[in-house]
Nucleic acid binder design. Structure first.
Lengths: 197, 197
DNA sequence: TTTATTATGTTGCCACCGTAAACATTCCAT
DNA sequence: ATGGAATGTTTACGGTGGCAACATAATAAA
C-alpha cells in the first residue's frame, strides 16, 4: 500500500506513455502507433509526450532500451543457476532470448523494428552488451573444450542469428506453432549440428 | 529494341509504382514510405495508385510477393547446378537466401516488415513455397543419410531461422561487416554444429 | 463508324498524424 | 513569497491515407 511518488501533474507520465505505447503495440502493432493516441490513453494532451521524448522515434527507442535491459537482466539471473556449467549457460542464453521474445513481443518488435536508423548510442550500447553475454558464454565453452575452437565472434553471430531468426519468425507469424519442443530443437540444433553421424 | 506494350495512359503504372517504391525504400526506409511520394515519383497524381492497389498495404504486399518469387526462382536456378548433390543443394539454399537479402534489402525488408497482419493469401502461398524448398532439400539429405533422421519440419525451421536471423541482423545493421567468410560460417555452422570433437 | 462500357487518371475533400510555438500551470529552490 | 524551471495545453501547419466525384482514354458492342 505504499503511495507512489507523484512529483508532478500527472505523476510519472514518461512511464505511463511507455506503458500505453506497449499496450497499443500489443493490440494494433507498431506501425500504426500514434503519439496522439498514446497521449490520449495516458490522459494528457497530444503534445504532452514531447516534454519527455524528443519525437516518436525517441519514445520507441526508450521501449527498445527497456527491452534490451530486460533480456540482459533475465539472462544474467538465469546464469546464476549454472555457475560452473558453461554449456548450460550457453544453452540458457538462447532459451532466455527466445522466451523473452515470446513473453514481450511488443518490446521485441520495437527493439528490431528500428530498422534503418537506430543511431541511438544508448541503444547500441545495450545491444552490444546483450551480444557480449552470448559471446562470453561461447568463449567459456571453448575454454572448457566444449565448443570447437573456431572464431568466437563468428560463432556468436551464428548463435545470435538462429535465436533471433526464430524469434522473429514466431512473432511475425511465419512459424505458427511455437511449441516448447521446437524451442529446444532450435537451441540444440546449432550445438549438435544437422549432419548425420 | 522491342517496344513495350503500353496499353494505357502511363504505360505500365503498376510496375512504375512498385519500382518507385523500391527506390524510395532503399533511400529512406520502408517506414517513411508514402503513397503520395511514390505517385509523384511515378509522375501521376496522388490518387492514381489506388487504381492499381487497394491501399498502401497492398502495394507493399506486391513488393513482398515479388521478393518471394525472386528468391524462389533464384534458388531453383542454383539447384540446377547440383542435380544429385542434396547436401550442396541444402547449403546452396541457405546461400541463395542470404545473398538475396543482401542484394535486395528493400524487398527483403518489406517481405518481413509486414509484421502482424500479412493476411494476404498470395503472400502466404509464396512464403510456404519458399519454405518447402528448404524443407525438401533437407528431406533429400536425410534420405541420403547426410542429415540426422530428426523431424524434417523442425530442422527446416532451424535452418530457416539461422539464415533469416542472419539476414535480418545484417540488414538492420546489427552485424556491421557481413563478409563472404561470415556467410559461409553461418551456413556451415548449423550443419556441422558447434560442439567440440 | 458510332456508341456504350470499362479502365485508368485527376481534383477536391476529410480526418488524422507528427511536431513546433506560444501560452498556462505547477513545482522547487532561493 | 518569488522567480525560474519543469511540465502540460492550445493552436497551427504541412504531410498523409484514402474516399468520392469527375474527366478521359481504350475497348467492346451496335
Amino acid at each position: 500500500m505504499k503511495k507512489e511518488s507523484t512529483p508532478y501533474h500527472h505523476g510519472n507520465l514518461r512511464r505511463a506513455l511507455i506503458d500505453a505505447a506497449l499496450d497499443m503495440i500489443a493490440e494494433h502493432g507498431v506501425k500504426s502507433l500514434s503519439i496522439r493516441e498514446v497521449a490520449k490513453k495516458a490522459g494528457v494532451s497530444h503534445a504532452a509526450p514531447y516534454r519527455h521524448f524528443k519525437d516518436k522515434e525517441d519514445l520507441l527507442c526508450a521501449v527498445a532500451i527497456e527491452g534490451f535491459d530486460m533480456v540482459i537482466q533475465d539472462t544474467l539471473k538465469r546464469f546464476e543457476r549454472f555457475k560452473d556449467a558453461p554449456l548450460s549457460r550457453f544453452h540458457e542464453s538462447g532459451l532466455a532470448y527466445i522466451d523473452f521474445a515470446a513473453a514481450f513481443p511488443s518490446h521485441y518488435r520495437v527493439m528490431f523494428a528500428s530498422g534503418e536508423h537506430n543511431i541511438s548510442e544508448d541503444l547500441d550500447k545495450r545491444s552490444n552488451e546483450a551480444f557480449m553475454i552470448l559471446y562470453t558464454s561461447i568463449a567459456e565453452c571453448q575454454e572448457a573444450k566444449l565448443v570447437r575452437p573456431l572464431d568466437t565472434f563468428e560463432l556468436a553471430m551464428a548463435a545470435w542469428s538462429i535465436v533471433h531468426g526464430y524469434a522473429m519468425l514466431v512473432i511475425d507469424g511465419f512459424i505458427k506453432d511455437p511449441s516448447e519442443r521446437l524451442k529446444y530443437v532450435i537451441t540444440n540444433a546449432l550445438y549438435f549440428g544437422l549432419r548425420h553421424e
